[in-house]
């Protein structure tokens, strides 16, 4: 459904994406994971027919994005990053306008169905400007779904939403992704892992790695760090921890807690807990801390530089 080969885009002298190659099949949800400035938006804009690449080619739903841009646009639903909408239009009028632009024969029915899908039926007559951020996001999705596109491209669909809304939007995307090809971008690892069938990790315009969420998880286990807190005096704790097999990289923290890592694929938290209790410590807290995207890149590209 999406076939990208050697895709490159320069903004003046600045190279935003460099020689990207990947594809996405029908019924697959592919995640584009990367920090700000990685080139996610640039790639999606090229795939949605907004702008041509400097080099390379992309075929979406069977059509070339440069030579058959209009055909591509007919078959793609696209939600831009900031979800631009006409604030002074009503939800219904806006969707009618978008449906008309796509020449939908049964626009009214489609709008009703789509509003139901994104649970916004009761807001159809309200002005877009009066909607909450989460509702606007859903209207942005509705707009992209109106014509039941073969390919759905969503640029950071959950950014700026509160946790409840994030869950809702994720569920909605999963539901939609059952039959359609979805390409979505995010800078949150857990989101990519939660929604996607496959994750492409992109940094500084290049694809760093590509894997299923399960495999990524396995590759990242070694990267997980644990923060541990006990009641009372903690001075002896590092020594004790170092005796537990599999514990690495023990570091006292300034707030009195202790941080450590464990070897890939070996979650030593149960052993640590047992050892502490056996020695008579009161365990107050033991939690996994996520890594920053930068640390994840280092981890996945095999560099030895975890922690700092």
């Amino acid at each position: 459904m999406i076939k990208v080969k050697g895709l490159t885009k320069d903004y003046g002298a600045r190279r935003a994406i460099n020689n990207l190659t990947f594809d996405a099949e029908q019924g697959e949800i592919v995640g584009f994971l990367g920090p700000n400035g990685a080139g996610k938006t640039t790639t999606m804009r090229i795939l949605s027919g907004y702008m041509p690449p400097t080099d390379g080619e992309a075929v979406v739903a069977g059509f070339d994005v440069v030579t058959d841009s209009i055909e591509v646009r007919r078959r793609v639903g696209y939600m831009p990053e900031t979800v631009p909408l006409y604030r002074d239009m009503s939800v219904y009028d806006f969707l009618k306008f978008m449906a008309d632009l796509r020449h939908l024969p049964n626009a009214e029915d489609r709008i009703d169905e789509t509003l139901e899908l994104v649970a916004m039926t009761d807001r159809a007559d309200g002005y877009i400007g009066n909607l909450s951020k989460g509702m606007k996001q859903r209207i942005g999705l509705a707009q992209a779904l109106l014509h039941r596109p073969e390919v759905l491209i969503l640029d950071e669909p959950t950014i700026g939403l509160d946790p409840g809304q994030v869950v809702e939007v994720r569920e909605l995307i999963k539901e939609i992704g059952k039959e359609r090809t979805v390409l979505l971008s995010t800078h949150i690892l857990s989101e990519a892992q939660n929604i996607c069938d496959r994750v492409l990790i992109i940094n500084k315009g290049k694809i760093v790695t590509e894997d299923t969420p399960e495999n990524l998880q396995a590759r990242l286990v070694g990267a997980e760090r644990v923060i541990l807190r006990i009641r009372g005096e903690q001075d002896d704790l590092p020594l004790l921890l170092k005796k537990v097999k599999g514990v690495e990289d023990v570091e006292p923290r300034s707030d009195g807690s202790v941080e450590f890592a464990f070897a890939p694929g070996r979650d030593v938290r149960p052993e640590v807990a047992r050892a502490l209790i056996k020695e008579g410590y009161d365990l107050l807290e033991m939690r996994l801390v996520g890594l920053s995207l930068e640390e994840i890149f280092l981890e996945l590209t095999g560099s030895e530089g975890k922690g700092n």
């Binding site: 804009r45 949605s48 027919g49 907004y50 209009i70 055909e71 646009r73 007919r74 793609v76 696209y78 831009p80 900031t82 631009p84 909408l85 006409y86 604030r87 978008m98 632009l101 796509r102 707009q143």
Partner: peptide, 14 residues
């Protein structure tokens, strides 16, 4: 300014 041009430029419209 509002970014809605992106919607129009990705709609099947010349």
């Amino acid at each position: 300014r509002l970014g809605t041009l992106e919607l129009l430029l990705t709609a099947p419209l010349r």
